[in-house]
Design a protein around this nucleic acid. Structure first.
Lengths: 253, 253
DNA sequence: CTCATGAGAGAGCATTGCTCTTGTACGAGA
DNA sequence: TCTCGTACAAGAGCAATGCTCTCTCATGAG
């Protein structure tokens, strides 16, 4: 697999960079068809995922639908888990994008509004893609270990929330209520950790924001996994109310 | 997977039952053996569940371990889903019991302490039985529809929380902070609904309590499903802090 | 003692993930 | 333009799975 033409000065770094991934340019016809088929496989797999769920995703079924024999699919994905991994990465990216758009649709200085919009962004995406959400946030499929590649996409949504909190804090728009004493010193390191996506805020605020974040996903998971079944009926309203309360614990009003 | 094929010629029912919960006193020997074998199946299944997870629970493997042929197990459970259902019901009961005990271990008038104890009760049980927790609160297994029988056991834990909130409210021990205006009228029906496990409290309080409840499970699910992986390290402390904040939104201090 | 009934055994079907071997068409280097 | 290595697909096969039959036999109520 040798590139036909090396156009940029990549030659200089060619011995250093082991992982080259610029496959956007049209290479040979073979590689083009390979990329096309790979995309088609993931598309079909995503559709099966949406109808059957993660457990029902079958490589053989995907192959069948493509008119391939089952073994041929292993040319593209060495195992079912590898297919799952790309679906997971795609899922995190799709969710992250939805959240980014929800945030961007609000005026930058309406911090409380942005918070609610972000929450709705998560919930709406989850309701629209329940099985993908389950793949990302449900019980991990047994024997499957998420590789490192999934980490950056996974952070996209939380980064949006962190940015909001930091901006609101910097703008002096936060008026957090006194709910408890200062957080225990033992949590300083974790708060410091959280500040990588939430720069500038206090330990207390970072921890509260993360709590609100888990509450958001707690609600959505409850709703999607059937735990609200005979309990909450006006779910959108109840969700928004709950998220407003959570936002209020951060001082977003 | 080892085989350990045990061809037991006769079923020995001289096993000391000593069981406490046989409401129908020992009927015919046949029925005794049947009850015993049913229990043994669920025990083995629960062990497999704990090691392999829900997806890896195989009727054939359970049968093999019992020295039965695979088809024989269908005399006891008509399908894999039925086995799952009894495991789910048992799981809810075990969780509910753990939560009840956690609550009971606190002085009745220490409402804030009881709240934290209940939260730890949920989390501790979940950490001790991760796969069972995943079965109860994780992504629903595709094609599986939880039957009605699972509803009462599922309410055991939430009833404990509701009782606490009602008692604290009745004792005048709640001092909820002003976090938002009154809840929308649209949620009155849902709040009324919540009052079946939380009698006497206001709409606002019922909704806040339910929010805290979802936040609790949100945290535990995040922790168990790997979402806290490179983020929170002192998890017990962070969890308790988060739950204290949630309790404070109810006015528990 | 009789005999319907409950229960285990075994074969079998359709399905899965995955491997191995064999045939084939492409396409880069001569 | 031809050749030959390579990428690819096909097919058979293995070890599992859930579940359904049928056959046989011991149990235990009448």
């Amino acid at each position: 697999m040798r590139a036909t033409v090396v156009k940029s000065g990549a030659l200089v770094f060619s011995h250093r960079s082991g992982s080259v991934q610029d496959m956007t340019a049209s290479r040979t016809a073979r590689e083009r068809v390979r990329a096309e088929l790979t995309r088609e496989i993931t598309d079909i797999a995503r559709r099966h995922l949406a109808t059957e769920g993660a457990g029902g995703l079958s490589l053989r079924a995907v192959a069948r639908e493509m008119g391939m024999v089952s073994s041929a699919i292993y040319r593209y994905f060495p195992s079912r888990d590898d297919l799952l991994t790309t679906l997971i990465i795609d899922g995190y990216n799709a969710l992250g994008e939805a959240v980014e758009q929800a945030d961007a649709a609000c005026p930058g200085d309406d911090h409380a509004g942005r918070w609610v919009a972000i929450c709705h962004g998560v919930r709406d995406w989850a309701l629209a893609h329940p099985h993908e959400y389950a793949l990302l946030f449900g019980s991990p499929v047994p024997g499957y270990e998420a590789p490192e590649d999934t980490i950056p996409p996974r952070l996209r949504d939380v980064i949006v929330m962190g940015r909001l909190v930091s901006q609101a804090y910097a703008a002096g728009a936060l008026d957090p209520p006194a709910l408890a004493g200062p957080p225990p010193q033992a949590l300083h390191a974790d708060a410091e950790n959280l500040r990588t996506v939430m720069p500038g805020v206090s330990d207390d605020l970072a921890l509260r924001a993360f709590s609100a974040w888990t509450a958001l996903y707690g609600w959505v998971s409850f709703e999607l996994f059937g735990q609200l079944e005979k309990t909450i009926f006006d779910r959108r309203t109840a969700f928004e109310r709950s998220m407003r309360i959570m936002g209020a614990t951060l001082g977003l009003r």
